[in-house]
Simulated assay, not measured.
Amino acid sequence: MAPVRPGRLPNRRDFLRVQAGRRCAMPGFVLQAAPAPADQPPPLVRVGFTVSKKVGNAVVRNRVRRRLREIARQIIPEQARPDLDYVLVGRQGALERDFAVMRQELVEALKRLKALAVATP
């Protein structure tokens, strides 16, 4: 079965709230995490994506964003804590990084932020 697509962070206020939380830098991205607001439905994991103009022109930024969206779709719903909101910030090296390596880096970043979901037996 395909992983469930995570929810999106809808507005700037949510991005700023998550930016003030914890972060973990990896070569291809920065993962930011912060507690989700109390009025959010609990099972929905929300993720936001951003890539600055320093990374490249619009074509490059969109390619980086697509790569980040795909690794988040594969990893976040299954392995991330649902009580946190996440933002993936694309970095310059995201296009050159191997996709499998970026997936492992996302899992490692979740571990470092203590944001891995508790496995239920």
Rank of each mutant, 00 (worst) to 15 (best):
G93M: 10
D98I: 08
T50H: 12
A20C: 05
D39W: 05
R66F: 15
F29H: 04
R46N: 05
G90A: 07
R103S: 02
R61T: 15
E108Y: 00
A94M: 13
A80S: 03
D83R: 03
R112D: 06
A34C: 11
R65Y: 14
V45Q: 05
R23T: 03
E105Q: 11
R46C: 08
P82D: 01
M102F: 06
G56Y: 12
D98F: 12
V47G: 00
E78F: 09
R81Y: 13
E105S: 03
R73P: 08
E70D: 14
A58P: 13
Q74A: 06
L113H: 03
L106G: 00
Q104V: 05
R81L: 14
R73S: 07
V30D: 00
L106Q: 01
R69W: 15
R81F: 14
L84W: 14
L31C: 05
R69L: 11
P77A: 04
G90E: 05
R103Q: 11
G93Q: 13
Q104T: 12
P43H: 12
M26C: 14
K111P: 00
V89N: 02
A38T: 15
G56L: 07
N62T: 15
P27G: 04
V47F: 08
K53G: 13
L113S: 02
R66K: 14
A94F: 07
V60M: 11
R69E: 13
A34H: 12
Q40C: 07
T50R: 09
D85L: 01
A94K: 04
M26D: 05
A25F: 09
A80E: 01
V47P: 00
G90H: 06
C24G: 05
V55W: 09
A36M: 14
R61Y: 13
R22K: 15
P82V: 01
Q92F: 11
E96Y: 10
N62Q: 15
R91N: 02
P35S: 13
I76E: 00
V64E: 02
K53Q: 14
R103Y: 04
F99L: 07
R63M: 14
R66A: 11
K114S: 12
G56M: 07
K54Q: 12
D83C: 03
F99G: 01
A80V: 03
R65P: 07
D39A: 12
G93Y: 04
R81E: 15
R67P: 04
P41Q: 06
I71P: 00
V87L: 04
Y86R: 02
Q74T: 04
C24M: 11
R63V: 13
K54P: 05
V47N: 01
A109M: 10
R67I: 08
Q40A: 05
R97A: 11
A58I: 10
Q74K: 07
L88N: 00
L106E: 01
E105W: 10
Q32M: 11
A72G: 08
P37D: 14
L95S: 01
R63I: 13
R46V: 02
E78T: 10
